[in-house]
Amino acid sequence: MTIIPNDLTQEKVESQKLLGKVAIITGGSRGIGSTIAKELAVQGANVVINYNSSKGAAQSVVNEIEELGGNAIMCQANVANMEEAHYLIEKTRSLFGRVDILVNNAGITRDRTFRNMSKEEWYEIIDVNLNSVYHTTSAVINTMIEQKFGRIINISSIIGQAGGFGQTNYSASKAGLIGFTKSLALETAKNGITVNAVCPGYIETEMFAAIPSNVVEQIVSKIPMKRLGSTNEVAEAVLFLANSSYITGQSINVNGGMYM
């Protein structure tokens, strides 16, 4: 079942590139994920906002999308858990009959120098940031192969490319996403499925707001564009890949020129 909002004018329908598509955004209740969800919904997609514990924030995103005339639902699932991740995919399929776009955005940080890092801090990051992508993608891949259509977009990071002090766990998880992206792209290209990564640099989010201002100034001084990125700029890259049919296995950098 494909749901199309009832209040769309013909002009608006024609301008919406993702009209009727079904998109899942993991970690879609806050920050980059919530902006991606809203951008895809504005473009006509039926959006499933996945969250783990932020129910109120997820509901707020749903409300915003509905106020814009879009269609969205929310679904609680800890995608680090394989059974819950599979539930997310199956619930989406049962409601909409298909899954066209999977944005693997769920991610956390547990920064610590390697000598002081606990095994819990290592495994938690790998489970949430990397294993979750295996869980969701393994649940959706056969559906996309049957459809002969799919867009899998993995949110990696500049830290997965360049490294980061005190971030061996986070860097390993995000670098792993890039390798995952390239290999799966090779396997699925013949099936009409594209697999790409977006690698944000330093983006102005709630998480980043907790960093002391003097540290932020040091970071910004190293960015060629001399400013932080916005969540909208990351969402634009995701939208571009969602609409692209001949780009696969790529990492799109949204970092103001900080890493090239």
Rank of each mutant, 00 (worst) to 15 (best):
E120C: 03
R115N: 11
K148L: 10
Y123S: 13
R110F: 08
V103N: 00
I159N: 13
N142M: 14
F114Y: 14
S118P: 00
D111R: 04
N142T: 11
I155W: 03
G107A: 15
N105V: 04
G107Q: 02
Y134M: 02
L102C: 04
V140P: 03
F165A: 15
V99H: 11
W122R: 09
T109K: 10
E121V: 08
D127L: 12
T143F: 11
R112S: 14
I125Y: 03
G164L: 09
Q167R: 09
N131C: 12
L130W: 10
K119C: 11
I145R: 12
A106W: 03
S138Q: 15
K119M: 14
L102W: 01
Q147E: 12
L130S: 02
K148E: 15
Q167V: 10
T143G: 14
S156P: 07
R151M: 03
S157A: 13
N116P: 00
K148Q: 15
R112I: 11
V128Q: 07
L130K: 12
T113W: 14
S157L: 12
R112Y: 08
N129H: 14
S156V: 03
E146M: 12
N104T: 07
I141S: 06
A139D: 00
L102S: 00
A139H: 08
Y123H: 13
D100V: 01
R98C: 09
I152D: 01
V128C: 13
I153W: 01
V133F: 02
L130M: 07
L102T: 03
M144W: 07
F96L: 04
I158D: 02
N154F: 05
D111E: 07
K119T: 15
I141Q: 06
G150E: 01
V128A: 12
D111A: 02
A106H: 07
S118D: 05
I101D: 03
F96S: 03
I158L: 09
N104F: 08
G150N: 00
I141R: 09
S156E: 02
H135F: 08
L95W: 01
M144R: 01
V128T: 15
N142W: 10
F96V: 10
I159K: 06
R115K: 11
V103F: 04
E121Q: 10
T137M: 09
T168L: 12
W122T: 03
R112Q: 09
G150W: 10
S132R: 05
D100S: 08
R151D: 01
G160T: 13
G107K: 01
E124F: 14
S132F: 02
E121N: 10
R93H: 13
N104K: 05
I153A: 06
Q167I: 06
H135T: 09
T143P: 03
A162T: 10
D127W: 06
R110H: 09
V128E: 09
Q161K: 13
F149K: 05
N131P: 02
I153Q: 00
L130E: 04
F96C: 02
E146S: 15
A139S: 07
R112L: 14
V140S: 12
Q161G: 04
I125G: 02
